[in-house]
C-alpha cells in the first residue's frame, strides 16, 4: 500500500515540477550550475570506468574463443555490442544512481532538514520547480557523456585486445564495423534519455519528501540509490522488449 502511495506522490511531484516556473534569468544560472555538477562532474568517473570495462569485455571475449572456427574479429564485435547496447546506457546509469542520485538526495534532503525548502515555500517560490526542474534539464545532456562513454569503452577494448595480444588491430576494427545497426545506437540513446529523467526525479523525490534529521538524510540517499537502480533495471527490460523485441 505504501508503494502505491509513493508512486502517486511521485507522479504528483513530477506534475508540480512543471508548474509555476521560476524566472528565466534565475533558472538559466541554476541549469548551468546543475550541468556543471551533474554532467561535467561525472565525466571523469564515467571515462575511467568505461575504459577499463571495455578492456575487460575484450579480454573475456577473447579468452572464451577456444574454437578455431570462431573468427578473431568477434572480439571487436562483442565489445561494440556490449558497450553500445548495455554497458554505456545501463551500467553507467547504475553508477550515476550512486554518484549523482545520492548527491541530489542528500543536497535536497539537507535543505529539507535545515528548513531551506520551507523558506522557499514561505516566500511563495515553487520549491519543486526551483530545485528539480534544473536537474531534469541538465540531465538532458546525459546522452552526451554516454556517447563519450561508448567511445572510450570501445577504445579500452581495442587497447586491451591489441596490446594484450588477444586480437590484431585489423581484426578488432573489422569486428567493430561488422553488421553495424544504427538503430542500436538510437535504442541506446532512447534508454539513456529515459534513465536521465529517472536519475533526476527519483533521488529528488526521496530528498524532497524526507522526514527527520541528518541520519535520515543518509538513509534517504541509500533508499534513493536502491529505488533508482531498481527502476532503471525494470525500465531497461521493458524498453528492450519494446524497441528490440
Amino acid at each position: 500500500m505504501n508503494y502505491i502511495a509513493s508512486i502517486g506522490s511521485y507522479a504528483i511531484m513530477v506534475k508540480e515540477v512543471f508548474k509555476k516556473p521560476t524566472k528565466w534569468g534565475i533558472m538559466k544560472s541554476l541549469i548551468l550550475k546543475e550541468i556543471d555538477e551533474l554532467i561535467y562532474g561525472s565525466l571523469g568517473i564515467l571515462i575511467f570506468i568505461s575504459f577499463f570495462i571495455g578492456g575487460v569485455v575484450a579480454i573475456q571475449t577473447a579468452l572464451n574463443i577456444t574454437s578455431e572456427i570462431i573468427p578473431k574479429y568477434l572480439v571487436g564485435f562483442a565489445t561494440r555490442q556490449s558497450i553500445i547496447l548495455e554497458f554505456a546506457p545501463t551500467f553507467c546509469s547504475i553508477i550515476m544512481a550512486g554518484k549523482v542520485g545520492s548527491y541530489i538526495t542528500s543536497s535536497i534532503g539537507t535543505m529539507r532538514v535545515t528548513e531551506q525548502i520551507d523558506a522557499l515555500e514561505v516566500m511563495g517560490v515553487n520549491a519543486l520547480n526551483y530545485l528539480v526542474f534544473p536537474k531534469i534539464i541538465a540531465m538532458l545532456f546525459y546522452p552526451f557523456i554516454i556517447a563519450i562513454a561508448m567511445y572510450v569503452g570501445i577504445l579500452g577494448g581495442w587497447v586491451a585486445g591489441v596490446f594484450g595480444g588477444f586480437s590484431t588491430s585489423a581484426d578488432f576494427v573489422e569486428g567493430l564495423q561488422l553488421d553495424f545497426n544504427t538503430f542500436h545506437v538510437t535504442y541506446s540513446f532512447i534508454k539513456t534519455l529515459v534513465f536521465a529523467f529517472i536519475l533526476a526525479t527519483i533521488p529528488s523525490f526521496h530528498g524532497f519528501y524526507m522526514k527527520g534529521g541528518a541520519l535520515e538524510v543518509g538513509k534517504a540517499a541509500t533508499t534513493s540509490f536502491v529505488w533508482t537502480s531498481v527502476v532503471i533495471i525494470i525500465l531497461n527490460y521493458i524498453l528492450t522488449q519494446l524497441l528490440l523485441g
Binding site: 509555476k20 539537507t110 520551507d118 516566500m123 511563495g124
Partner: peptide
C-alpha cells in the same frame, strides 16, 4: 493557489535555524 502564493510574498519568516541558503 496563486492568491495564496501572492499572500505568502507578503510574509517574512525567520526560522529557528535561520534557514539561510548555504
Amino acid at each position: 493557489g496563486s492568491e495564496q502564493r501572492n499572500l505568502r510574498q507578503e510574509m517574512g519568516m525567520v526560522f529557528q535555524g535561520s534557514a539561510l541558503f548555504d
